[in-house]
């Protein structure tokens, strides 16, 4: 993807392909989980593709990105090989993080994706620190940190708004408001249902956009990163979105209202964007079918690759606990060897 600025037809095709890849990849991941090949938690972002792809498409490739544990899409949108993402989900030696992180902890430093984190709100100060490092070195990148509506109630997020506003750090806080913190709705968790004004309280320009509309997200994030880059100002954008699956694969999603789910289904970001592409003659129906088939093949290949990849050797259990290790014996504890 080419980054912010005027959106060319090729950008739109790339964005659609990225959204298709995420959708298709996650549906496959769901199958792999049901087949017992993926363990732990698997949080799917199905329904949130516009928020993810719109954001990443508006970023420069060297702008650091941090995320929550619902981050397969961020890695894929950034260009990480689906093979290494799926292999990580299956806990294989070919995985992106060598089978140490799993679904919740993907990172691709080579693509400036600084990771998915499992503690709600806990990754936001890391994104702020990446912004701090940019300013320290006089760089012109912008740190983008994505977190959910649930995280906005964590104290550390307020701490980050304050420091970002105080020090004018080049950061975009992206609140991906999917309206539920696990199973608890926003109205049951937040005294005010608009979340972006919390950033405004710290002098940070902030606004809300439709997170189901990939072009709207791209436009908002392009403007936000432009402000952060050129005006040296932190910015906050709230993306109102919806996830079509439960919190994770272990959530049967019985709490949310069926009518509500159906209403949001009608706004499926892939379907609405497909209409735009056809309407503006960016793609033909045949183009889309061909792209879909190609993506499906790519995802099947990723799954096959992951399933056929070797397990992680147990002898590597204690590798990488430290960058400067003092002990390579997994049972040795803190002892110097």
């Amino acid at each position: 993807m080419t980054g912010p600025g005027a959106t060319e037809p090729q950008d739109m095709r790339d964005m659609f392909r990225s959204m298709l890849l995420i959708r298709c990849f996650e549906e496959k991941a769901s199958e792999e989980y049901m087949a017992g090949r993926i363990g732990g938690f698997l949080h799917l972002a199905i329904g949130e593709e516009a928020a993810v792809v719109g954001t990443v498409s508006a970023m420069r490739a060297d702008d650091p990105l941090t995320s929550t544990y619902r981050e397969h899409g961020q890695a894929l949108a950034r260009g990480t090989d689906p093979r290494s993402v799926m292999a990580e989900l299956l806990g294989r030696s070919t995985g992106l993080c060598g089978g140490r992180g799993g679904s919740m902890h993907l990172m691709d430093k080579a693509r400036s994706f600084y990771g998915g984190y499992g503690i709600v709100g806990g990754s936001v100060p890391l994104g702020l620190g990446l912004a701090y490092a940019i300013r320290y070195r006089g760089g012109d990148q912008v740190s983008v940190t994505m977190f959910g509506d649930g995280a906005t109630n964590q104290g550390v997020v307020a701490e980050c708004f304050n420091m970002a506003g105080l020090w004018d750090l080049p950061i975009v806080f992206l609140i991906l408001n999917n309206q539920y913190g696990m199973g608890t709705s926003l109205e049951h968790a937040s005294a005010e249902e608009d979340l972006y004004p919390r950033a405004e309280a710290y002098g940070i320009p902030a606004w809300k956009v439709d997170g189901m509309d990939v072009m709207a997200v791209r436009g908002a994030v392009a403007e936000a990163t432009r402000m952060a880059r050129e005006e040296r100002s932190p910015v906050c954008v709230e993306l109102l979105a919806y996830r079509y699956r439960g919190h994770s694969m272990s959530d049967p999603d019985t709490v949310r209202d069926a009518e509500e789910k159906e209403r949001w289904r009608l706004r499926d970001p892939l379907i609405t964007f497909e209409r735009v592409l056809l309407g503006e003659a960016v793609m033909t129906a045949d183009d889309i079918s061909a792209m879909r088939a190609e993506v499906e093949e790519q995802v099947e290949d990723a799954a096959t690759f992951a399933e056929q990849s070797p397990e992680v050797p147990v002898g590597e259990l204690a590798d990488d606990v430290y960058a400067n290790p003092f002990n390579d014996d997994a049972r040795g504890g803190a002892l110097m060897r």
Binding site: P125, L128, Y132, A133, I134, E159
Partner: peptide
Amino acid sequence: PQRVVDTPITEAGFTGLAIGAAMAGL
């Protein structure tokens, strides 16, 4: 002041900020 920085009273925030800065190589 670039190298010696007073923070607000915000231990989780500035510790996390420093971890992020360290991830960037500082």
